[in-house]
């Protein structure tokens, strides 16, 4: 494709700042590509009108782009690109200049439109939530290099390197200073402060590795409770609790002052926690992330 001049690539593009043609009205913008393909005026306008109706702007054909809100301009840009039914549609951070509410609404609309029209979309974004919410497959890029390609869940739960792990969501990640392979194939990794974590066999790695766990995968066991001694239980002292209404964000320290983040729903069990309190944290072996 790279050897073709841009106008022959058949690649639809939705630009970050929409790049609508300010001298053409909305209908003119959407019909532009059709006219370049020598579609007769009447037919081009009919298709453009239909595309505008799909994005809810059926009555806006005679407006100029600068008479539209940001969200509306975004829809025009979208209609302008998909009206040509390109085999591939590239969206370059299409929602980055919209406010949060509108952004979330547009995500759903774009996803629905994509399904309805059977479009193949490449959706470029810096917003991890957007990437996770909209994608069938995600490619994480850093400095022009593909780091990992996979389904959203795979990227999140099995990141291949530190960049991916830290880029998508938040993560507790510690360097292992002692790594032992157990008989069942799992790995026992010790991090600074003496805490050990067991890594399930299917994600186990050896050598210079880092191990960790997503904050929301850590459970807080009631103080003093010993329970069954599970493989991944750690002592911790709560340092600070950030109250987010529905959620709590807790910063704590493992032995050896190793910091750890815990995210939890603000449920009755944890409502009485306070800084300084000693607790036990626990996570499932399957939730432990291991990267080399």
């Amino acid at each position: 494709m790279l050897h073709l001049p841009p106008h022959k690539r058949e690649l639809g593009i939705v630009f970050q700042n929409y790049a609508l043609f300010p001298h053409l009205d909305v209908l003119g913008n959407v019909a532009f590509g059709l006219r370049r393909r020598r579609v007769p005026v009447a037919e081009a306008n009919r298709q453009a009108k239909a595309a505008l109706e799909m994005v809810g702007l059926g009555d806006y054909g005679r407006r100029l782009p600068n008479q539209l809100s940001g969200g509306q301009q975004q829809r025009v840009a979208l209609a302008r690109a998909f009206v040509l039914r390109p085999p591939l549609l590239l969206m370059d951070e299409p929602l980055s200049s919209l406010d949060l509410k509108l952004r979330e609404q547009m995500r759903h609309e774009i996803r629905a439109l994509q399904r309805q029209l059977g479009l193949t979309l490449i959706y470029v974004t810096h917003d991890q939530d957007e990437a996770l919410a909209m994608s069938d497959r995600i490619a994480v890029l850093s400095a022009g290099q593909v780091q990992q390609i996979g389904a959203p869940r795979e990227i999140y739960e099995r990141p291949v390197n530190e960049f991916v792990a830290r880029f998508i969501g938040s993560v507790n990640l510690w360097k292992a200073d002692d790594v032992r392979v157990e008989a069942d194939g799992s790995v026992l990794a010790r991090v600074a402060g003496g805490t050990t974590m067991r890594v399930a066999r299917h994600s186990a790695k050896t050598g210079a590795i880092q191990v960790g766990v997503r904050p929301e995968r850590l459970r807080i066991l009631p103080a003093g409770s010993v329970g069954e001694a599970g493989p991944n239980q750690f002592d911790a002292e709560i340092e600070e609790i950030t109250f987010l209404g529905e959620d709590l964000q807790i910063r704590a320290r493992l032995p050896g002052a190793t910091p750890v983040q815990v995210a939890t729903k603000n449920v009755t069990d944890v409502a009485s926690l306070a800084p300084g309190q000693r607790v036990k944290l626990e996570c499932s072996v399957d939730d432990v992330i291991c990267i080399s």
């Binding site: 001049p5 106008h7 593009i13 370049r36 690109a81 040509l84």
Partner: peptide, 18 residues
């Protein structure tokens, strides 16, 4: 904006048409 030209090219405009 250069983007507007790129948009026109992506919609099938030859350089002359852009």
């Amino acid at each position: 904006p250069v983007r507007v030209e790129e948009a026109a090219a992506s919609l099938g405009s030859s350089p002359l048409s852009v």
